[in-house]
Amino acid sequence: MTSGDLKLRQAEKTDADQIFALAREFALTFRPERQAFDDAFPQLLENEDALLLVATVEGTVRGYLLGFTHLTLFANGRVAWVEEAMLESAYRRHGIGRMLLEEFETWARSRDAGYVALATRRAAEFYGALGFEVSATYYRKMLTVTK
């Protein structure tokens, strides 16, 4: 793979099928459902506080990153949160994940975010090499969705 083959850009509507395939590979606890994905995808593309980046190699989406900025009280303003970062397994260890995170950091800085955070049980070495530090324990509680 040469750097000429790789492009980072904001996701577009036409990327939906390829991003959905990666999201299904990403999810361990949840199994993404297509209808829920199709409902959320256009909203994320239009959300000014969200950034959905894709990494394409020769025009095919091989990775994506979904992140947000939001206001806080404790951090004196905005912070940025990486919600999902996924690379197709054959494209890991080629610098693509680093590029996605660096692009997200640039966007977060442009929105005056004080820091970038994420929760993960994977790739500790990768995130450490990019300057991330262990900061907290992650808790969650599953909620029953009523429709």
Rank of each mutant, 00 (worst) to 15 (best):
G4N: 09
L73D: 02
R31N: 00
V79R: 08
G63H: 00
M99Y: 08
L53M: 10
A21W: 03
T72Y: 01
A36S: 14
A123Y: 04
T137V: 15
L66S: 08
A21N: 07
K13T: 15
S135T: 11
R9D: 08
E103Q: 15
F37G: 02
F41I: 10
F41V: 11
M142T: 15
L6S: 02
L28R: 12
D49L: 07
A117I: 03
G128S: 10
T29P: 05
S3N: 07
A129G: 13
T69K: 00
E125H: 13
L130T: 10
G114S: 15
L101R: 09
L100Y: 02
Y127N: 03
D5K: 15
R92G: 12
F20A: 06
T120I: 03
R98G: 06
E83D: 13
F74W: 06
N76R: 10
L101V: 09
I96W: 04
V145E: 09
V57M: 07
L73W: 03
R111Q: 02
D112A: 14
R92A: 12
A16F: 12
W81K: 07
F37A: 03
G128C: 06
T146Y: 06
D112N: 14
D17H: 14
A36V: 10
L6V: 05
R34M: 08
A21C: 06
G63A: 04
L118N: 02
V61H: 01
A16R: 15
A75K: 05
I19Y: 06
A50E: 03
K7W: 12
T56N: 02
L44E: 03
T29D: 10
L51S: 08
D49H: 11
T56I: 00
H70W: 14
T106Q: 14
L22F: 08
V54G: 07
F126Q: 11
L65I: 04
E88H: 13
M86V: 06
E133N: 14
M1Y: 11
K141L: 12
E33K: 05
A113S: 06
M86R: 02
F26R: 08
S110L: 01
A117R: 09
T72E: 00
L52E: 05
N76M: 07
F37C: 04
F20G: 03
E133G: 14
L52S: 09
R111C: 02
A21R: 10
R34P: 03
G131R: 08
R9N: 12
E105A: 14
A75Y: 04
G67V: 01
R24N: 01
A80L: 14
